[in-house]
Design a binder for these strands. Structure first.
Lengths: 147, 147
DNA sequence: CAAGCACTTTACGTTAACGTAAACCTCGTC
DNA sequence: GACGAGGTTTACGTTAACGTAAAGTGCTTG
């Protein structure tokens, strides 16, 4: 894996500043611990649009960020359709008409409300977990104290 | 819908203290805005175990709480399998052996870690939403200022 | 007693989000 | 020039979480 300076072409990719770096599908997959299949699927669903070099997909910084946001959305239980909706409107923003923009604002408010409810859900679930945890420890101590 | 006192049997259910109240499947479904099918499915998956009266399901306070917790878990993106795992261990707690209890504690720690990551995800997603929101408002103002 | 609810079981259908397998390119390397 | 490591497309398979439809049960109400 040692590198001779004459090897050139377009390697040394990971030494480049982030904005110029590119990734193969396998690299991205490793980084985010998903399979290439997943990444291709997201493209098919309109969440990613990498450029090509021949028939190979080339991912740039923008694509990496998109993937990151997508996976974050997934961890929060959003469907790919929901995620796409926001992402696409975001992209359409610069030249969006007023109606589109207002729709986007509505969408954002929706998502925000959703997140707030999740926060509350997390708060409550934490309390319950702490409670169960405490009771489990009690029982366990009981068991170990009286053999 | 007026009620004669002689109607009796076991009606007036909703006037009872919570701990004694019972629910039909339809009532529970209304309360939580899910379909009866969903509730039956959760039972089939081992998340609920209502008693019967003839062949009709009778839900008690305990079942209602379970359903509530289940739905909360769902909103947070947990699978029914994950939820069941915790719920069943919780039930097995009183007479659980040490190994089981320790396993339960592990499970709880896992869930907690999961929640923490979700909290962070929510925090980040909020920031992004706020950002997009701001930019959308800017563009919109631009549009309305220059007709 | 017929009609209408609300419940029941059984069973097949559906959708989202990938997994898996086959068959094919295209490099750099031995 | 064979080959192995990655990439590609195409297509069928799988799982979770219900939806939907059919056919039957049981009460109470006009």
């Amino acid at each position: 894996m040692t590198r001779t300076p004459s090897q050139a072409q377009d390697s040394d990719n990971d030494a480049l500043p982030r904005q110029q770096r590119t990734y193969t599908i396998g690299e991205l997959a490793q980084i985010f611990e998903v399979t290439p299949r997943t990444i291709r699927f997201y493209e098919q669903e309109g969440l990613l649009a990498p450029s090509r070099q021949g028939q190979k997909r080339i991912y740039r910084e923008k694509d990496r960020v998109r993937l990151k946001l997508t996976l974050r959305g997934k961890r929060l239980g959003f469907s790919l359709a929901e995620i796409r909706e926001v992402v696409m409107m975001y992209d359409a923003m610069p030249d969006g008409n007023a109606r589109q923009l207002k729709r986007l604002l509505e969408l954002l408010a929706e998502k925000r409300a959703n997140l707030e409810r999740q926060l509350e859900d997390i708060r409550l679930m934490r309390l319950e977990i702490d409670d169960v945890d405490q009771r489990a420890r009690d029982v366990l101590r009981q068991l170990e104290d009286t053999p």
